Amino acid sequence: MSESRPIGTYTADLADGSPVGRVDFVDSPQAEGERVFFHTEVDRRFGGRGLAGLLVREVLKDSIRRSVTVVPVCPLFARHLAKHGDEFVADGGKFRQPTPGDLALVKRATA
């Protein structure tokens, strides 16, 4: 028997409540306060407007507020933190590189 972890989602919505973007994550069962971000998606109709970057920045701000350690499996999160990780840490954020265990967690959660 394997443990099933629910997938959490941040969403960006239009004023009428219609979703236009999302960031999916799973909380690590091995480490309290670690959140593995594995997918970012923006509706094609809204592509090219910087919405994905806005989503990443807002999620990172929320991670600081919640004192959550970010584990960037999503390539967009990984690129952002590679470029702006020092700023994120200076603002009070925490992140670490993903491990094979994190990748396995995402695979189980999305199976």
Rank of each mutant, 00 (worst) to 15 (best):
R5K: 12
G21C: 01
G21I: 00
R108F: 11
A90K: 15
G53L: 09
P6V: 04
V70S: 07
S18C: 03
L60K: 01
P19Y: 08
S28V: 00
V106T: 06
L81T: 11
E41F: 03
H84P: 06
H84I: 08
R65H: 10
L81W: 10
A52N: 00
S28R: 01
R49M: 07
G92M: 10
D13N: 13
F37L: 06
H84R: 12
V70K: 00
D13F: 03
T40Y: 01
F46T: 02
T11W: 10
G8R: 09
A111Q: 15
P100A: 15
V20K: 02
G93H: 04
P19V: 07
A12V: 06
D43T: 01
S2G: 13
V59Q: 09
T69W: 04
P98K: 10
L60E: 06
A31S: 12
V36T: 02
S28F: 00
R5F: 11
P75V: 13
V68I: 14
R108Q: 14
F46R: 02
G17C: 01
S2C: 09
D24R: 14
Q30W: 15
R66G: 08
G47N: 06
P75A: 15
P6E: 09
H80W: 12
L54F: 12
R44C: 08
V23H: 12
V20S: 03
M1W: 12
R79M: 13
S67P: 02
E3W: 12
